[in-house]
Design a protein around this nucleic acid. Structure first.
Lengths: 110, 110
DNA sequence: CTGTCTGGATAAGAACTGGTGAACGCCGCC
DNA sequence: GGCGGCGTTCACCAGTTCTTATCCAGACAG
């Protein structure tokens, strides 16, 4: 195995994540996430199956402290969900934990 | 053994790439790329279908770190595109990934 | 059931990125 | 010197993305 710095590709469920390309592929199809969107997605994916609190997400992506009543994270999550749904309608990846934050976990929508 | 560094000729889609001549032929016609232009084209071609980030392109061609707001890469891409389009109007080879970089992948423009 | 709070959805304006044409400077050559 | 190819930089503009505001549905407490 050619080692090298960061992993070239991460595979989870039906996803292929390429960090150094900022790309997420679903069964070969590109999801078309923007840079910000990928950041969010990737940071959640790295914490597979654990709930990440909203302020923590904010800090990791925007830096600094999350202003009260800020909705940036929500809007971003929505956009990521929308794009992923377009390429993988039968799956859901980001789950809401009310009053807390979000959790990444690929699941089939039965 | 085929020996020696890189292959003499690489063929992809309707392209014929000759690294040691710095030439790209499209169905027999020379594209007329300059040295710089060929460097860009070839480095992207070698990473077929993967997105290469702008700063990485810069580093590989110019060396050093890409200055903020630098447009060299863009302009070079444009020139390569222009020359390729002249010899292959029905094809597109270099695709833009907004906010990230460029990706090489020969495709017909239907 | 009612009131309050959180998150989903959408939209408008601001901010940013990349496409494009042209100008500029550098060299080698006529 | 004047010319032409090449590489770089500049400026303008269109298109994309981000931020923020608003309205609304769902969750939860009393």
């Amino acid at each position: 195995m050619p080692s090298t710095q960061s992993q070239r590709t991460v595979e989870i469920a039906n996803l292929e994540i390429r960090p150094d390309e900022l790309q997420v592929l679903v069964e070969g199809r590109r999801s078309g996430l923007t840079v910000r969107e990928f950041q969010l997605f990737f940071m959640l994916a790295q914490r597979l199956d654990s709930v990440v609190q909203r302020p923590q997400i904010y800090t990791e992506i925007w830096g600094g402290t999350m202003p009260r009543r800020d909705r940036s994270v929500d809007v971003l999550v929505r956009k990521v969900r929308a794009k992923l749904e377009q390429v993988a309608p039968e799956w859901s990846y980001i789950h809401t934990h009310f009053g807390i934050g979000y959790r990444f976990s690929p699941e089939r929508t039965s």
